[in-house]
Design a protein around this nucleic acid. Structure first.
Lengths: 126, 126
DNA sequence: ACTATTCGTTACCTTTAGGTAAGTAACCTT
DNA sequence: AAGGTTACTTACCTAAAGGTAACGAATAGT
């Protein structure tokens, strides 16, 4: 994801950096979805792949690695017959729940508002 | 911005769509920043251009148009000597404040956590 | 007539997020 | 030995976001 810019004014440096970090880490196509699913409990690679319809193993690996490097999930290799790998949330990840909630609430209100508006963009229904 | 995918499971359709809308509308490099600055009061195109260091008029026009079409800002043409255009928030835009707050809070905590971690990504300080 | 200001547009280019398809490695079952 | 399962990796490609640079239209000042 391209990095967010905030010019210089009105936002103190720390806030600007924090906001950029958050958007970079949680933005993109799959991150919030992965975190949401892991909130239901520990999942294996395969589980996630099945639930994230359309994701490729390459991208899933990528996303999981980023989340792990940022301390939001832990990766555990299990010594099972064919090897399996488990992913689960760290306590830190639960802080992201507030972002999810806010986005969801905003999205719901926005959707009500935009429905039937000619000037609004065509919203998907699938 | 590419559209968010949420597979099919665990998230009811409406929630999934709402979340996708929200991320698409508020994501990207400049949106939240623009809304934040407009929260300080009505701003002209030029004002925004000066404050968003690095944005080109093309991109600024683009972003403002999207926000207008989604009913978050209003655009007013003033009949001044050289024409000026004012942008201001609609009441709806204030709902996005919660998203900003959540992202900021998460970003601040995350930044504390990651600081000095070898496994964490290199966080920018500029 | 010439230049400046404000708010754009247009054409073109680069970067990156994400997708596709195939292959690898370890281990198991038949 | 052949084929299946799990968790990847590798190489290549596409589409979209965003950047750069130049130009246009309206109006005003000198």
């Amino acid at each position: 994801m391209l990095s967010i810019e905030f010019g210089n004014a009105s936002l103190c440096k720390e806030a600007r950096l924090a906001l950029r970090d958050a958007i970079e880490l949680l933005g993109g196509k799959w991150k919030i979805c992965i975190l949401q699913h892991l909130e239901l409990g520990t999942k294996r690679f395969k589980d996630l792949q099945e639930v994230m319809v359309g994701i490729s193993p390459k991208v899933l690996t990528q996303e999981l690695l980023e989340l792990e490097q940022n301390l939001l999930i832990t990766r555990t290799v299990n010594n099972t017959k064919p090897i399996t790998v488990s992913y689960s949330l760290t306590p830190f990840a639960y802080e992201a729940q507030a972002v999810y909630d806010a986005l969801l609430a905003f999205g719901i209100e926005h959707r009500k508002r935009i429905k039937g508006t000619l000037s609004g963009k065509t919203i998907p229904t699938v």
